[in-house]
């Protein structure tokens, strides 16, 4: 319970949070000529590569143009991946502050995730342009977006917090996690749509008796539900499919408290070992 209190106390640090987020963003783009344009580069490049790849593999994207579908999937994915990569290093990178001054240390991983909001917004604007190009437009279902984003933030934090704390003791974590995370991309419906997985596992039962179990394990990855929900509410004019979301959400609901608990325990020795 004490950690719930600790989490609530973060509200007192909201000004510090916003100042640090602002600092991160200003610092990142201050001496970069292209500035904020860099944020779009990654999802756009990936989208182009996937689109090129698809031209000779052949992935069925249904009625929605493939570039839009994959770009929509890439927005939450890039947010998650970079939020984790940044967050895991956040304590170590701020060693100077950690050793000199006290405030709740979870501020650092939290700031890493919140900083990614800016990129999220820019990417979203690009998506709107892309949709307009293909003659698509937003529907009222887009109102789900803030809720989905909040879930995405919590998912990222669940990995972030424990990762950042572990990385203080063992720098191996910052080497290992990004590699592991990049593998998760293939286990998420980003290059291919979720409908493909459903067709293979649920409809044609490709893995025999284990098909349903496999599908459950697949949806345990919270990114599966998130990516599918993004595509539903933005492109398909449908509400999120909760039958896909719940296993992942359950997983996050268990992982996040454990991750935070570990972080708060490790917090006291950060300044000693960093």
């Amino acid at each position: 319970m004490s950690h719930v209190k600790a989490a609530l106390r973060l509200w007192d640090y909201r000004e510090l949070l916003s100042t640090l987020v602002w600092k991160e963003i200003v610092v990142r783009y201050k001496q970069a000529y292209l500035g904020i344009a860099w944020t779009v580069l990654k999802p756009v490049m990936l989208m182009l590569v996937f689109t090129l790849m698809r031209s000779f593999i052949g992935i069925d994207s249904g009625s929605i143009p493939y570039p839009v579908l994959t770009f929509t999937a890439l927005i939450p994915w890039v947010f998650f991946q970079e939020g984790v990569a940044l967050g895991v290093n956040s304590i170590v990178l701020n060693a100077g502050l950690v050793k000199k001054i006290y405030f709740p240390r979870e501020v650092f991983p939290l700031v890493s995730v919140l900083t990614k909001m800016v990129e999220f917004c820019v990417d979203f604007a690009v998506l709107l342009g892309l949709m307009a190009w293909y003659g698509l437009s937003l529907t009222t279902q887009a109102a789900w977006l803030p809720l989905l984003l909040a879930y995405l933030v919590l998912t990222t934090l669940a990995v972030n917090l424990a990762g950042a704390a572990l990385n203080v003791f063992y720098r191996d974590v910052s080497q290992f996690l990004p590699v592991a995370i990049s593998l998760v991309m293939y286990a998420s419906p980003i290059i291919y749509p979720l409908s493909l997985v459903k067709r293979v596992l649920l409809v044609s039962q490709a893995a025999g008796v284990h098909s349903d179990l496999l599908y459950f394990l697949y949806t345990l990855n919270p990114l599966v539900g998130i990516v599918d929900a993004f595509q539903s509410v933005l492109l398909r004019n449908q509400p999120p499919d909760f039958s896909v979301i719940w296993p992942g959400a359950l997983f996050v609901a268990m992982l996040l408290p454990a991750s935070y608990e570990y972080f708060k325990r490790a917090e006291h020795s950060f300044a000693d070992v960093i």
Partner: peptide, 13 residues
């Protein structure tokens, strides 16, 4: 705390 003055300064800002 003034443990090493200027510890919290960020160089790009």
């Amino acid at each position: 705390p003034l443990i090493e003055v200027g510890a919290g300064l960020h160089h790009e800002l």
